[in-house]
Design a protein around this nucleic acid. Sequence first.
DNA 1: TAAGATTTGTTCGTATGTATC
DNA 2: GGATACATACGAACAAATCTT
Lengths: 252, 252
Amino acid sequence: MKRKSDPPQRKKSRPYQVAEAIKSWVVERGLQPGDRLPGEADMIARFGMSKGTIREAMRLLQAQGLVETKTGPGGGSFVGEVSADRAHALLANYFYFRNVSIDDIYQVRVQLEPENAAALAGRLSSEQIQELRAIMARYQTPAETADEERAQHVDSLLFHAKLAEFAENALLGFIIGFLAQILTELTVFKQLYAEPNHKLWREGRDHQTNLIEALREGDPDRAREVMLEHMELARRLMEDQEAVVMKRFIAE
Amino acid sequence: MKRKSDPPQRKKSRPYQVAEAIKSWVVERGLQPGDRLPGEADMIARFGMSKGTIREAMRLLQAQGLVETKTGPGGGSFVGEVSADRAHALLANYFYFRNVSIDDIYQVRVQLEPENAAALAGRLSSEQIQELRAIMARYQTPAETADEERAQHVDSLLFHAKLAEFAENALLGFIIGFLAQILTELTVFKQLYAEPNHKLWREGRDHQTNLIEALREGDPDRAREVMLEHMELARRLMEDQEAVVMKRFIAE
DNA sequence: TAAGATTTGTTCGTATGTATC
DNA sequence: GGATACATACGAACAAATCTT
């Protein structure tokens, strides 16, 4: 398919082979998160390789979030479920050497956030609505200092992260959550949102209030509409900010 | 922020600490892909740790695609750029234990593919247009067998992957490429697209022909429109297929 | 082609750390 | 607190890959 003339294709290292074998093993047996994997000694015997090699293999899997290990009796390696945070971090690495502008992020957000809002209309429990209100409450009073301003922006991104968490479509939810995460880091570490524009910011809060209403009443069209306005507003707010990009490595 | 009462928080393993240190080192010095990292012997001296520990640290970084190593003279560890394929694979792991239906995928595609098409209108070189045509050429003749049918569907997904590759918005491009990748794997390994519907399929090809025209002429609105129709058609084609989800582990 | 130099890859034996009972 | 079971870490030697001459 995509090979020219069977290029070099170096032999894969043994830890790598072991890691692949373990993954296949997990898939074939349909193991679930928390299920136990063979211990070190066991693997040394099974694969006929040294302890170091086996350990390196486990590190490969650990870095991907696929296994977790514990020491002590009853310890060992277990199948792990990749957390959203870890997946965010691994994905952020991909963009580290690539240029992604704020506007690039909003180009995606404008498309997906309204869709998520619409899909959520009428499907949130009163507890979930309550959670959203609780987050909103944190930025009802006007910010006085630049630090407060930043904190409020982070909270408003948390609002979107919550909506992402509530999404039934895990794919849609992940992407939105990832974007909120990136914007949060940019807000905290860079001087994003440097110049507050209070009028526009108040408009933004009104959007969220209206959005919660639409979600509660189960009006998908209105939820989509409100969120779209909200995104377009935010995008305008960010207009000057450009070229500031994702420059970070995995946190975990 | 999110801690209850400073929970256990076990001490991090040494390889993990070393990996973190190396990442910071790369970030602080602004190292670029291909840049050389200290050799094993050097690190053993710097960190005052054993060879095995250092090697495990490198494996952690390797699994994330952040470093590459080569043996022999002039070999060693180098800063690596995370490839799209690797990022796809790492991300797919996140969805392994989560339910993502075909329709979930299309809910995102319907929003993003038209946007990408519009953004690309009038910005493709004639070489790029040629590449797209070359791919399309592969499925102009009606498929006779089920295998041919599948191969054609894979090629048509390659068409979308190419558009993703051409995207100037790396974020948008990545997501679209990821979805094309997932659908390709589902097509190849599961019996997705099992029942060919020739009439709808021909419509799909016409869409792509029209799309190329719109891209060449630099008509974003038409490009968006055509792609949207194309997506809605594809979504309808997949209507019956549901619950088939991402069940696989990392490939490379 | 072949030998030597350089750097990562692998092994084994031993010792230490850590959590459970 | 002590015994147990497990991962974690060290060090020295050897193997394999690859570049240079």
